[in-house]
């Protein structure tokens, strides 16, 4: 699991650190850390089948941190707008005219109280201590979510 929740600092909200060898891995890990707060058994969503719902996402930003902010915010939007808990697949991050482009497929399942152990309603990604860094061949993010 390329992410960990930070337990003792942010009392009312939830913070996590996510990491990956590539930007794609980092974005997928941070997405799972976010979705993993909404459902306790995220692995249930791993079994993608004919009932899964796909949303193709393309987002552009000049800064990598704000691109991650937008991607995580999309997951929260899907939860409220379509009652979908999603994980990202086929993620590609490229550059285009000085902008960074995220392309990916959000694969999700409709919230099912019998199947998914629902946890908490994530309200928003905050920018408090929000960070994306690259060092020692590792991409890392620090994120605080409003609960």
């Amino acid at each position: 699991m390329p992410y960990k929740y930070i337990e003792d600092k942010f009392i009312a909200d939830v913070a996590f650190e996510a990491w990956g060898g590539t930007r794609e891995e980092l974005f997928m890990a941070a997405s799972d850390a976010t979705a993993g707060l909404m459902v306790e058994n995220l692995k249930n969503i791993e079994n993608i089948n004919e009932n899964s719902e796909n949303k193709i996402i393309e987002l552009k930003e000049t800064e990598i941190d704000m691109l991650l902010f937008d991607v995580l915010q999309e997951l929260i939007f899907f939860k409220d707008a379509y009652q979908l808990i999603c994980r990202f697949r086929n993620v590609k991050i490229t550059s285009e005219n000085k902008r960074i482009v995220f392309k990916g497929t959000a694969v999700g399942e409709k919230i099912d109280y019998k199947k998914h152990n629902l946890a908490v309603d994530v309200k928003a990604v905050t920018l408090h201590e929000f960070k994306v860094q690259y060092s020692n061949n590792l991409w890392k993010a620090h994120v605080v979510l409003d609960i």
Binding site: M66, Q73, I76, F77, D80, K123, A124, V125, T126, L127, H128, E129, F130, D146
Partner: peptide, 26 residues
Amino acid sequence: HQIATDYLRVFLKAMPEYGISVPDRE
């Protein structure tokens, strides 16, 4: 939640225009 998120981004972009800097982007 979405209105707050939308305007957080708007304000981040607008702050330099008004010469405002803050110690926390929130």
